[in-house]
Design a protein around this nucleic acid. Structure first.
Length: 538
DNA sequence: TTGTTGTTGTGAGT
DNA sequence: ACTCACAACAACAA
């Protein structure tokens, strides 16, 4: 390489030093290295019109998590003789300006399957190749290359976990050592007239003082990720016996899972390094659980959703999505708002939504409970609406996985047993009969006796008075009656499935409109349901 | 065409 | 802890 030339390492996800092939390649045989992160105002700057504090796209918790991750990355780079160059603006414009301004012959960044990056990367790659700049964009965010798996399957993604696992086999790097440490990095070259800043604080981005109790207990960054990883894998018995469906969704003092998802999302933790650490544990124990329920199984689920998402046009919507059942969801903004703002009147559901809002994280089964409740279980609201709320508020929200799970839970794809509905009352009770989880996240109910805490509207007024929580005043009545509404949802799902089957999945807007009309013209027959309808809260 | 399988339901009964 | 009825789906393999 000619002297005076440099490489540009463009960080997006993959906010780490360990197992970072793009960074490794960028640093190799170059005199100068420009480690860049571009702050996209659309992702980072305050939007006063959103329903929660944050930008148009991200809630404040995730923005803060990202900033912490960037500070940690900058610190690590500084220890290696470099630093993070933070720039602001539309990412492709900023990147192209840098490439023009700086003496750069190579551009490195981690390959990304999300539509947003696919579109962005085309722009940047086109410029680079016209300018004679070499581009290196390795796959390191997933265990496998999703495109390879789709190719192996004849151009279409596998649609079941088992077929995915069969096709995937062992990762190519499974038994070769990953590059975990970096001893030093080339200096940063002259940055010319490009406006470089330090990692901004949340205040510098324009966010005012935030309520202390609204802050997620999870700190961002690679250092934190590795600390958390070590702590998780130190308990070999726990790792070896881990079974996802058996976790306790109401455990919040000590969550029942690793809570490594936000670190995997931003790439603070390499999924490949995590995988190898787990294999090390498995080698040293007599027996261990296996996919799909084991911890390695969870990483495979992640790759599964990435693969289906890449190979499915319009994966994030119902219309035009060939794997998605067409269902005549309600367009009821009041029900949606009640769910989103934790005032459905079902304490188990509302406590989970409070945890989502405050922590940006909740247990997998808790996510199931509220997603089922919003869609096919009770409210029959469109899964895309719930997806949007999760996408904004979760610190680990991941485009492929979030959409995949909403498709799953709404019985739109992957999973179809719409009769299996999580009860907003008994599901939580099974794990937490005393209601400690509810008491913690909904303090208004903290003195409600455990006999009534999952169904406070059934408590006698004297009990409500004593608990200093009058239902309908201090805490809402149920927004819909679960017994009758869940039956109604089952009926609608059955009708919708029949229609999808009849039309072989090709369901037009008109067909859905007709079905909506039919469902309303022939409501639940009188006397079919033994329950009397509770009056909804008005 | 048929049988098997699918990470994670509820409520009642043993 | 396990079983069953509930009412029953799609994907895949044979």
């Amino acid at each position: 390489m000619a002297s005076g030339s440099g490489s540009l390492m463009w960080f997006r996800k993959g906010l780490r030093i360990h197992d970072n092939p793009a960074l490794e390649d960028a640093a190799k045989g170059t005199r100068f290295l420009y480690p860049v992160f571009v702050i996209d105002p659309h992702y980072m700057e305050p939007d006063p019109n959103s329903f929660s504090p944050g930008s148009p796209r991200a809630g404040l918790n995730r923005i803060r998590f990202l900033l912490e991750s960037l500070v940690d990355l900058d610190l690590s780079l500084k220890k290696l003789g470099s630093r993070l160059l933070v720039l602001k603006g539309e990412p492709s414009e900023v990147l192209i300006r840098c490439l023009k301004e700086w003496d750069v012959t190579k551009l490195c960044f981690e390959y990304d399957t999300e539509p947003y990056y696919q579109a962005l990367d085309v722009k940047v790659k086109t410029y680079a190749s016209n300018a004679g700049i070499e581009v290196f964009s390795p796959v390191s965010h997933t265990l496998f290359n999703p495109a390879d798996i789709i190719h192996k399957n004849g151009g279409r993604p596998p649609l079941t976990y088992q077929s995915f696992v069969r096709l995937a086999g062992q990762p190519s790097w499974a038994s070769s050592p990953l590059s975990i440490t970096v001893s030093s990095l080339p200096h940063v070259g002259d940055v010319g007239s490009c406006e470089i800043s330090e990692v901004p604080t949340i205040e510098e981005l324009g966010y005012g003082e935030s309520p202390q109790d609204g802050f997620s207990p999870f700190r961002g960054g690679e250092s934190e990720a590795l600390k958390r990883l070590r702590k998780s894998i130190a308990d070999k018995v726990w790792v070896a016996t881990f079974e996802k469906p058996k976790g306790n969704p109401s455990a919040f003092l000590k969550p029942a899972t690793t809570v490594l998802s936000p670190y995997l999302k931003f790439g603070c933790l390499s999924c490949r390094y995590f995988y190898q650490c787990l294999q090390d544990v498995y080698r040293n124990v007599k027996r261990h659980t296996s996919p799909p329920v084991s911890l390695v199984g969870q990483l495979l689920w992640r790759d599964f959703f990435y693969t289906v998402a890449l190979g499915t046009p319009n994966f994030d919507q119902m219309r035009g999505n060939r794997i998605c059942k067409q269902i005549p969801w309600n367009d009821n903004d009041e029900l949606l708002a009640a769910w989103r703002d934790a005032r459905t009147g079902y304490p188990w559901i509302d406590a989970i939504m409070v945890q989502l809002c405050k922590w940006g994280w909740m247990h997998h089964l808790a996510r199931h409970s509220v997603a089922c409740f919003l869609t096919r279980g009770d409210l029959f609201v469109h899964w895309e609406k719930g997806r949007d709320v999760f996408e904004r508020l979760l610190i680990d929200s991941d485009w492929a996985i979030n959409n995949g799970n909403w498709l799953w839970l709404s019985c739109s794809s992957f999973f179809y047993q719409y009769n299996r509905i999580y009860s907003p009352i008994s599901f939580g009770k099974k794990y937490d009969p005393n209601g400690d989880y509810i008491r913690h996240f909904l303090p208004v109910l903290k003195d409600m006796p455990k006999e009534y805490i999952y169904e406070p509207w059934t408590a006698p007024l004297s009990v409500q008075t004593k608990a200093k929580c009058i239902i309908g005043r201090d805490y809402p009545k149920p927004v819909v009656p679960h017994d009758s509404e869940s039956k109604e949802c089952r009926r609608k799902m059955a009708e919708a499935y029949t229609l999808n089957q009849k039309l072989k999945g090709v369901v037009s807007e008109e067909d859905l409109k007709n079905l909506r009309r039919k469902l309303e013209e022939h409501p639940e027959q009188e006397g079919k349901s033994k329950r009397t309808r509770q009056k909804p809260v008005g």
